[in-house]
Design a protein around this nucleic acid. Sequence first.
DNA 1: CATTATAGTGAACGATCGTTCACCTGTCAA
DNA 2: TTGACAGGTGAACGATCGTTCACTATAATG
Lengths: 190, 190
Amino acid sequence: MDIESATQKIRRFFRKNKRLPSYQEMCRLFGFASKHASFKLAAKLIEAGILGKDDKGRLIPDRLLPSLPVLGIIRAGSPTAADEQILSSVSFDDYLVAKPEKSYLLRVSGDSMIEAGIQEGDVVIVEKDREPKEGDIVVASIDGEFTLKYFRKRDNLVFLAPGNSKYSPLFPAENLTLFGIVISVVRKYH
Amino acid sequence: MDIESATQKIRRFFRKNKRLPSYQEMCRLFGFASKHASFKLAAKLIEAGILGKDDKGRLIPDRLLPSLPVLGIIRAGSPTAADEQILSSVSFDDYLVAKPEKSYLLRVSGDSMIEAGIQEGDVVIVEKDREPKEGDIVVASIDGEFTLKYFRKRDNLVFLAPGNSKYSPLFPAENLTLFGIVISVVRKYH
DNA sequence: CATTATAGTGAACGATCGTTCACCTGTCAA
DNA sequence: TTGACAGGTGAACGATCGTTCACTATAATG
């Protein structure tokens, strides 16, 4: 049983059960008859940095989580491994949603932010209770209308600007309520 | 100890340790002196659908995972809970990356796909070993140049089209190698 | 051939696991 | 005042946990 296929099997187990297998379960997973075989294999995985250990000796995932390789574009040539490893080990959940208790998702309808690269059908992650800065994309209700727009502030004048030259900026006549600022955008093609 | 604050503490533990606490650890977490108190509290959380149980009696997360509310835009009015719950319980990892073993990440440079809503600095998730269909966005090497473009096929003529009217379509003179098709896009603002 | 290393078996240990049971409070309604 | 009940304590159980040790089988090396 080589390390790579073992990693793959453990990863599959972890994705399915949301936890790591015990040594006993690894035996079923790998076809071992003895727990000690799993124990030694796990030691190798720890050595390889794929698994880790708790303060109290329990197995914990380390580089087991979907660590997609991050490639960089070199102008001419094939894609090569990028030096930055920011995304490689972190889950998208942690990467995209900093404060899950203050966030919600919104499926975008309309084309008012299309020049900002936000299309119909995209999902935006919105964080509440945060002071918007000039240029942020915000979810707002302006005079009863509910929209996704740029937050603009010019000489103490606050208004909402669309990311689409077909539309005009919105100046609040009566009421402007902010429901949060957009911290990330997600799009899925297939 | 009410259910909500217990859920919050367990969620915090799970995010930190990538696993659920044992009843003993819950005692430290909740300030209990007896495991049985944790046991009964966990029973309530299971009743509430927040936790679940394994085939073998182990605790597993159910609705504990970061379940961001998905809101929908009603034309006039405040955002309300959307009927679709696709995203609510699924992690972004599972949502965005269908086949992690065949995927990689690419940080986008350049503006050649800006009209497709893909900007400089965005991260695209690319899946390898997949036959591109007309209109797919692909990562390709054309005559030694490495790019992100639309895959076009017209009357058996294959070429690459940019998502930016400033640029022209690229017709392969010698060589066209595909490195995968873009299945999702991720952008982070803050 | 002998030797060393690698991989797996199998038994055993103390610790921790989930679970059950009996008991001890308070609080609130009858 | 009484009884029921919910919430927490504490001890106990068998099962499983991680870990250790001694042993076997196979392959590679000299």
